[in-house]
């Protein structure tokens, strides 16, 4: 009976947490405008998460973490697309080097170098976010701090990979 009571207390909380909808449009629109104006799209990071947090329930701990997680996922999607495009072009480049008899075997795989920097980025991102929430390890704020760090750094890596693509 007591457990049932708890469920009724938690029910509206759970429903509210799911009800804060994340919309990628503010960040997407900002990226489009920044790119068209020749500006750094880094200014756009967090636009959608901020808009999400202004909605009802968006300013609770669960709401904030959900909103930041929504934008993290948005940037992860862009990161994955940029990474796959880079990998495909690096493989083509490696194949063209391997096919050239004069340079075959003299150059390390650039596809492997891409994978290596990505693995090291992931390790560093987790170490960084851990160092950011470590001072608050005993508080509820650690969730939002970690979510903010994950979003910010995923966005930075997505923009980094995008820059590599543009340089090729």
């Amino acid at each position: 009976m007591r457990a049932l009571g708890l469920i009724f207390i938690l029910w509206p909380l759970a429903a509210a947490a799911q009800d804060v909808p994340f919309d990628p449009a503010p960040t997407e629109t900002c990226i489009g405008e920044a790119t068209a104006g020749g500006l750094d799209p880094a200014v756009c990071v967090g636009r959608s998460a901020n808009a999400c947090q202004r909605q009802q329930g968006g300013d609770t701990t669960i709401g904030i973490v959900g909103c930041l997680g929504g934008e993290r996922d948005f940037w992860q999607g862009r990161l994955d697309i940029a990474y796959d495009a880079l990998l495909s072009r690096r493989r083509d480049f490696d194949a063209s080097i391997a096919g050239d008899a004069s340079s075959a075997g003299r150059y390390p795989s650039t596809a492997a170098a891409l994978a290596e920097q990505q693995a090291l980025w992931e390790a560093w991102r987790d170490a960084l976010c851990r160092s950011e929430w470590a001072p608050y390890a005993d508080g509820t704020i650690r969730g939002p701090i970690n979510a903010n760090c994950q979003m910010r750094e995923t966005a930075a890596q997505a923009l980094r990979l995008q820059r590599y693509l543009e340089e090729m």
């Binding site: 170098a113 920097q117 090291l120 980025w121 390790a123 560093w124 170490a127 851990r130 160092s131 390890a137």
Partner: peptide
Amino acid sequence: IASQEQALREMQRAWIVFRDTACDF
């Protein structure tokens, strides 16, 4: 509570390795 100093040092070590590798790439 886990050591903040240790977390900071591990973070900085991981960053240097990432930075050098990313810039090499």
